[in-house]
Amino acid sequence: MHIHTLERNWLWVAGSVVALLLGTIVYTAIAHNIHPPGQMETIDSASLHLGGEFAEDQLGVRVGADGQIRVTLVAARYGFFPRNIELPSGTPITFRIASADVLHGIHAPMTNLGTMIVPGYVSTVTTLFPKPGEYPLLCNEYCGLGHDHMWSKLTVVDPQNWHPDR
């Protein structure tokens, strides 16, 4: 190989930039446990309504015995159910979401809440909302001709004003 000095220098620069970016990502992933959602967990999307975690009466916000707040949602054409949820700010919250029909995606703009929802799989994501306010929960994956209309509402309130339903 004949590598010109300038090329050699550039390769060092390019390599260093990539190493720096990758180093940051791998470091935050391992040391701070910052990952996108991802753990394979299957579910029969055709029978969510027949019982279990995603049955209608089980959906919504609940506080576990350990104090951890958990939100169970079903994504189905065309909404995230239940349609309105209220959560405290500054508190870690775990969302568990399953699709009852096709592909969906959930995103609350200006927050870190986002995941794909794939039929046959449970999406789990844990995040917190730093600021109180009203946030739309938007479907961000094409799911049919009514896709534009698929959204629900998230209200984030100060923890002192938040009272869990159950």
Binding site: H35, G38, M40, T115
Partner: peptide, 13 residues
């Protein structure tokens, strides 16, 4: 597939 549920974090990384 970063945001997908059917693959784990290790392979994504």
């Amino acid at each position: 597939l970063y945001m997908d549920p059917e693959q784990g974090s290790g392979f994504k990384l």
